[in-house]
Design a protein around this nucleic acid. Structure first.
Lengths: 117, 117
DNA sequence: CTCATACTAAAGCACTTGCTTAAGTGATTT
DNA sequence: AAATCACTTAAGCAAGTGCTTTAGTATGAG
């Protein structure tokens, strides 16, 4: 397995799980503690902690412990990075389609010139 | 594992592998056959086929067989969907920050009124 | 001090992933 | 017809994932 994309595929991996998608979605509506985050999820608290660690390792979430509770909040930087990669792919693909269109136009032009021969 | 996000987390899962990121990146520069796609990758052809199936299942790539070669091309729909989800999270988070800012402004205003008491 | 709360750490287990190799299938060249 | 090419299928395996339960630790309330 090659890896020149270490941070990026960690972000996608973190988002590749429905539980973690729900966690990110809830955190986008406001910061909360681990147990608040866990409350609607059909699994144990340690399981939620493990998901949280994946999100933190990807840079999607930051958390800090205050007293005995850990407060979690979204960090948009990693999400933006994912967005930029997707946008770059879209642009490459679309500019290729444009170039193909131009090329087909050129062929059509040549065909018009050369039609009687 | 809950799943109200079936298509979306399939897309992120498909992008959560460095080999598949390379495949998508190469396909964004133009369509190609399975063996062309496989040529720079340090693994067997069946392995590349398996990655291709993951990308197709996620709706990121379409392919069609012509004669004995299979031509693969990018399909931007799934990528756009991923992008829209990320943008929605960003907007929710940012509007929450704005509301928080407004609230703090309100408190400051009340504090100004109530300062002498 | 005692007890409940809010995590945290560790071990274990079923299942999935990312490969491999070997043995096909069907299309195209020779 | 025989050989080659471009996949395709299947079986198998090591490593990783997504949980679990059990047993902690540190903080805060009474």
């Amino acid at each position: 397995m090659l890896n020149q994309y270490e941070p990026l595929d960690r972000v996608f991996h973190a988002l590749a799980d429905p539980t973690r998608l729900v966690m990110v979605e809830r955190l986008s509506r406001g910061s909360m503690s681990v147990s608040e985050l866990a409350r609607p999820l059909p699994m144990s608290l340690p399981a939620v902690m493990q998901h949280l660690q994946v999100l933190e390792a990807a840079g999607l979430v930051r958390s800090a412990k205050v007293g005995r509770t850990r407060s979690c909040e979204l960090d948009l930087a990693a999400l933006s990075q994912a967005n930029r990669w997707i946008e770059a792919r879209r642009r490459e693909w679309e500019s290729r389609l444009v170039r193909l269109g131009d090329y087909l136009e050129t062929l059509k032009g040549e065909d018009d010139d050369d039609h009687s021969g």
